[in-house]
Simulated scan of single mutants.
Amino acid sequence: MESARNTPEAEPTPAPGPVAESAEPATLPVPAEDVPPVPAAVPEPADDEVPPRRRRGGRTLVLLAAAAVLGIVGGVAVGYGVQAEREPTPLPPLNQVDLAYPAKPAAKGQEPPALAVADDRGLKTEGDLRKLLLPKPAGAKDVDYAPEDHWLSASSYAEDFESPSGAFEYLMDNGIRRIATTSWQVGEFKTVHINLLQFRSNDRLGAADRATTLREGLEEENGYGQPLKGSTEGRSYVLPVDREAGFVDVYEARAVVHRGDVAVEVYILDTKKISQKEITSLAERQLGRL
């Protein structure tokens, strides 16, 4: 019995009738799909004939390769000729922090003197970070909500963000070490805040990342900002006035920069317009202490 796969669809059975006798026995029809195809006869090639193969580029590829080589050689020769006719151009100065050296070199045969704190910025930040904060100006008042010891915990710092848990996790992931802070009030409304965020030295570069993140967020709404002297990436920004019905106008200016493993944040809040010069000068003076 044939399988269901090879059985054609059933056709209606004709009515029974007389069976005609035949000299040969009747044979069942074989489905066409069960008949193996008969391969066409392929003449065998003569011994001296070789089947042709498809040329892969042939002469065209050879010509293109030769032209490419000539073009490269010619371009190099012309480039050397043009460069030889030019005047020598001095190299730009290296964009890096000045190296620290002792004020007095060591005499021959003596041990070199140790670097003083003033000569090594790394030694500055390894001491009491709070001493690097700008001092409160004469006539300014303390802010009630500022910590008296000028230390700010990571959780307290994160509370000022829209997502405190996300801000705290960000600080932990980037290796926050400690935060020194200072605040003061001038007159009736003007308030100044400065934060020094020190990160651990690892491959995360937490201080640079914090400064870059804050700077990019400010530039999305306030433009490029004013560069800070003594830094290649530090910027100061004067934000648009914040007006709300029933409340006094609030003006704000910010500055952000980093040096080594310390990120610097400077804020000024007032009910009067804040000049770009004021926030820039304040941030540059704080940067100069690091």
Score class of each variant (00 low, 15 high):
N222D: 10
N222V: 11
G223C: 06
G223Q: 06
Y224S: 14
Y224A: 15
G225E: 00
G225N: 00
Q226M: 13
P227D: 11
P227C: 12
L228K: 07
L228P: 01
L228G: 07
L228T: 05
L228M: 13
K229H: 09
K229E: 09
K229C: 00
K229I: 02
K229F: 05
G230L: 11
S231I: 04
S231K: 08
T232L: 13
T232H: 07
E233C: 00
E233F: 13
G234W: 06
G234F: 05
G234Q: 04
R235P: 04
R235A: 06
R235W: 12
S236A: 15
S236L: 03
S236N: 05
Y237A: 03
Y237D: 01
V238Y: 05
V238K: 01
V238H: 02
L239M: 12
L239I: 04
L239V: 06
L239H: 06
L239K: 10
L239C: 02
P240R: 15
P240I: 11
P240A: 12
V241N: 12
V241W: 09
V241L: 09
D242E: 15
R243A: 06
E244K: 12
E244R: 15
E244Y: 11
E244C: 03
A245M: 10
A245N: 09
A245C: 00
A245I: 13
F247H: 14
F247P: 00
F247T: 11
F247G: 03
F247A: 13
V248F: 08
V248K: 10
V248G: 12
V248E: 07
V248Y: 05
V248L: 09
D249M: 08
D249F: 08
V250P: 02
V250I: 15
V250R: 15
Y251R: 09
E252C: 06
E252S: 13
E252G: 04
A253M: 03
A253N: 05
R254A: 07
R254H: 10
R254G: 00
R254N: 08
R254E: 04
R254Q: 11
R254L: 08
V256S: 08
V257A: 14
V257K: 03
H258Y: 15
R259Y: 04
R259F: 00
R259L: 08
R259P: 00
R259M: 00
R259A: 01
D261T: 06
V262N: 01
V262P: 03
V262C: 00
V262A: 01
V262Y: 00
A263P: 01
A263V: 02
V264I: 15
E265G: 13
E265C: 02
E265H: 10
Y267G: 05
Y267A: 11
Y267F: 14
